[in-house]
Computed example of a mutant assay.
Amino acid sequence: MSDPVLVGVDGSEASLAAVDVAVREARLRGCGLRIVHAFIWPLMHVSLGPAQGGPAGGGLRHQAENVLEDARARARALDPRLEIGAELVTGEPLTVLARRSRDSCLVVVGSRGLGRFGALLIGSVAVHLAAHAACPVLIVRGRPEPDGPVLVAVDGSGVGAEALGFAFAEASARRVPLTALHVAHPSASLPGQEERALAEAIAGRRDKYPDVELRSELIEAHARPALIDASRAAQLLVVGARGRGGFAGMLLGSTSQAMIQHAHCPVVVVRHEEQPAQAPAPAG
């Protein structure tokens, strides 16, 4: 059985939107969906049952079970034929989702969640998972252009090559064009060098995905603002966790972090692994 798509939920509107995206991704891959709600309160040694004199259906555990059931019902309504598993796990959300990613093909999370520090969730859950998950991570944010292409950042690195492979598979499954964007720093380019790097990056991919209309673009600009601007017209942006200019000790580069925080469409961060994660099957 193929590894499922994993989605983390917390009851927020952002996490329910993530369920919608996760259902679509599972359908594209022909795999199941696993919904996980991390339940941290048992670790805090607080009462989980209803308050004294309160309604029988009250309490933190019942609330957590409702969060999970609401997400499962939403997924089932979107695709009744999809195999759906739901799991209430005791633990801290970052740790739980990173651990569950080991046997998942994709993790989907919302960009913001519940709680007093909800505005900081994008800096905790999304960035942490993008750096530490064992499979690609899709962060649901912005407003995707429904008819837009899949956009992938290409830089000639090993990480960028895996991001490109993932993007080809995603474009094929979605039946939309793929834009491979190579952003060359104006002061660092050598004549012909960047063109060769772009050509080498896409070489061979067209044979594997002949159905994908590829649009390759090379522009001289600063990477972060150029990608953010290009994401306005895309339905999905794919980036590597750490690109050619990153430091070896950094698990998530500054460009990837900027896309997670500022892109105008959902973002997938792909890490370099010895065994690439499962991608959508080519359309056919």
Rank of each mutant, 00 (worst) to 15 (best):
G59H: 07
E69K: 08
P191G: 01
L43G: 12
G253F: 11
F117C: 11
S47Q: 13
G249D: 09
L178A: 03
A38F: 02
V269W: 03
L164Q: 03
R271D: 04
C265H: 05
A188T: 15
F247E: 15
S101F: 04
E83Q: 14
L16G: 06
R224L: 13
P276D: 08
A130F: 06
I228Q: 10
L227K: 00
V270N: 02
A98M: 05
T90D: 12
R99I: 07
V212K: 04
E145K: 11
R244M: 14
S101G: 04
R99C: 08
H262L: 14
V159Y: 13
S104R: 03
G58I: 04
I40G: 10
G165A: 15
G85S: 15
L198D: 01
H262A: 11
A26Q: 07
M1D: 12
Y209L: 05
E194S: 11
L60F: 14
G91T: 09
A17W: 06
S2A: 14
P210E: 02
E65D: 07
S2C: 12
A131H: 00
G192R: 02
V19S: 09
A77G: 13
G85H: 11
L48G: 05
A230T: 05
A281M: 10
A51Y: 12
G165F: 06
S104F: 00
E195P: 04
A119G: 10
A73S: 14
A130G: 07
I40H: 14
I40S: 12
E200W: 08
G158W: 10
A56W: 08
G85Q: 06
W41V: 01
A56G: 12
A263S: 06
G158T: 14
S256E: 03
N66V: 13
